[in-house]
Design a binder for these strands. Structure first.
Lengths: 295, 295
DNA sequence: GAGTTCTTTTCGAGTAATTAGAAATGAGGC
DNA sequence: GCCTCATTTCTAATTACTCGAAAAGAACTC
């Protein structure tokens, strides 16, 4: 189907309404009054419906006019937005940046960064790949991500430290481990179910738990792990930032380990190709860095 | 800001991609090949970015091209949708139909009707005014509604019966009235709290309860009333269709009234102005009638 | 590797649409 | 009733678009 009216004609209608009258519209559009008049006439002819009506010496919208004007404003906005996006692309901005994020990276910071990024570039989209351990790196190595936040910088890549995530060994307050009421040893832990998050890598997956618990349950998402531990299904090392709330209201309680109750994981920001990275990828990297103030 | 490219140029880009090549596009658009070539050239010049690139004798989208094509399709769809809407308006279809509905009208039927209406006319919007008793009529009389579903047809209007809503006197199973375990009299009821819905009319409001209970609570929404009764806060006559679920799982229990446990309210469909009603209002009326099969 | 075929691009001329100014029309204000 | 302000109509000119023919590129054939 072929559009019967042009963007320019819609624009004239808008101008007439906004600068009440053909004279004002002509002024605003840098066109002659007769041009505007002709344009509106074409528009109405194309649509087969009257949009403006002279009431005395004032041009007023008809009911149909009001309705169609409303939609046409949106249309024109969209047309201009596309052209702005084209301008970005012309300047070398990628249309999309693919970011692989280790799930233990604090969501709050991630969202804040994406928000900041969105305000820098209204047009570049972000494709977020949430992954675990080697899965994050595989995305990077396979060229499926332009940027990654990972705990292990893969061979041949250059990572810059971004932030440190603190893991605490926790369990539900009613959990048998807490009933022991004494510093816990590795032997104690082995007796109980540990929840670990499945490595999302396909090539050489390894689980995110490091000691061999007798019964070890593997789940796919960090959220599932948190949920399960909160329900008393086992213990786990979980990122402090993810369980701050649950610790505060007592749904989770730190395990009194003799040693190793706390673990620290350093997260790195890695470019797939630092030289070839487009401005959008660089801008996103900046936003991420800013969300992690010197720590 | 003035758009630098036209809808027609976007359409040419789409045609080239869809009918792979300039030749196919020209065929599809009923234009010459050189016209299409010229159009794409203008488009790229206007945007300042290359969209198509010749790979051998095949035209392929650049990254920017793919992205902008995607958005331009949406743009063109919107442009055509507005013109379709204009076509509707040209045929006299109102841009919006305002429907005042008595809250006791079954929501399921209402939504089914609106759904059916939406498929008849993609463009006419519905403005729904949910009101109670005289409130519904006031909307109609004041010209704030084109169509109304009301229990009381106001003077000077013509109503057609639409459906009957059955009200049952109910209370929570634990309610003292149920503890009496005998047919209840009006006197029994007066001892207890009745929940009634506030008339939404401004002029001559009267409440939707008919007998004077000692303590009568008035709420604004039917939903609040249902909720309150289900929590044992009192008794009320409620539309059977609204509480079918609560009756079934025993959260509400019909009161064993000596008389008047059931009440029937007839709902009427009323036009604000049957002669002047536009096709959209008539179509919506049809949808409503069809949702209430002979009853 | 020269010719053939298929396709896009360039060119030049013709055509349709848009534009602006002048004149005409219409609607208040005095 | 006449003056003023605003829109519409008319006409001429400019601009943008369109087309066919010819040129240029790229793959395919022999």
């Amino acid at each position: 189907m072929r559009p019967r009216v042009t963007l320019e004609q819609w624009r004239m209608l808008q101008a007439v309404v906004d600068h009440d009258g053909y004279a004002g519209a002509a002024e605003a559009l840098s066109k002659s009054v007769s041009t505007v008049s002709y344009g509106i006439r074409r528009l109405e002819a194309g649509l087969g419906v009257a949009l403006l009506e002279m009431q005395g010496r004032r041009a007023v919208l008809t009911t149909a006019g009001r309705e169609l004007l409303r939609r046409s404003r949106y249309l024109l906005d969209e047309a201009l937005a596309i052209e702005r996006a084209a301008g970005m692309l012309a300047k070398g901005w990628e249309p999309v940046v693919r970011l692989a994020v280790e799930v233990i990276f604090p969501q709050e910071r991630l969202l804040a960064s994406l928000d900041a990024f969105a305000s820098v570039t209204g047009t570049t989209r972000v494709e977020l790949i949430e992954s675990v351990l080697s899965g994050t790196n595989e995305q990077l190595v396979a060229g499926k991500a332009d940027l990654a936040i990972t705990a292990m910088v893969p061979q041949g890549f250059l990572g810059e430290p971004l932030t440190t995530v603190e893991f605490i060994a926790v369990a539900h307050p009613e959990h048998p481990l807490h009933a022991l009421s004494r510093p816990l040893t590795q032997r104690d832990l082995r007796q109980h179910r540990q929840l670990v998050v499945r490595d999302s890598g396909l090539r050489e997956p390894r689980d995110a738990g490091w000691l061999g618990a007798e019964q070890r349950w593997t789940v796919s998402h960090l959220a599932t792990s948190v949920e399960a531990v909160a329900r008393g299904m086992g213990f786990a090392w979980l990122p402090r930032h993810r369980i701050a709330g649950l610790l505060a209201d007592g749904q989770l309680q730190p395990l009194p380990l003799a040693e190793g109750a706390l673990r620290h994981v350093e997260l790195y920001l890695v470019f797939a190709d630092r030289e070839d990275a487009g401005p959008a990828a660089r801008a996103l990297a900046d936003c991420l860095r800013r969300s992690c103030p010197a720590d």
